[in-house]
């Protein structure tokens, strides 16, 4: 879990949802940074054993920050800037065939 440091420059606030919960983040932050700042500890469950996983490297290398953004899965949250109204969801394991058809 993370928190903002003192004296950080305030930016414009953007609204987004995480698993349906309304949250706000700073404009200019990535999706992952916004979730960390909101105290979100895990962003996905692994496809192999289903255990919770959180962002690890924040530089596009580890792919542990994979998340569903506006209905599209496997996005690297640490590389995607937060946008107003984004619908962000936990990525649950591997994709199921019924999700593909939708």
């Amino acid at each position: 879990m993370f928190r903002s440091m003192r004296d950080a420059k305030a930016g414009a606030r953007l609204s987004f949802t995480f698993d349906g919960r309304p949250l706000t983040g700073r404009e200019g932050d990535t999706v992952t940074a916004s979730l960390l700042a909101n105290g979100v500890t895990a962003c996905r469950e692994t496809p192999v054993s289903g255990v919770p996983r959180a962002p690890y490297c924040l530089m596009g290398v580890c792919f542990d920050c994979l998340i569903v953004i506006d209905g599209i899965g496997n996005r690297q949250g640490c590389l995607v800037p937060l946008r107003e109204g984004m619908r962000i969801e936990t990525q649950h394991g591997r994709r199921q065939p019924e999700e593909m058809r939708g």
Binding site: S4, G28, C57, M59
Partner: peptide, 15 residues
């Protein structure tokens, strides 16, 4: 490095 990136880019620190 991740903590440093979080600090530089978003001014957030581990709580």
């Amino acid at each position: 490095g991740a903590a440093q990136i979080a600090l530089k880019s978003a001014a957030i620190v581990p709580a």
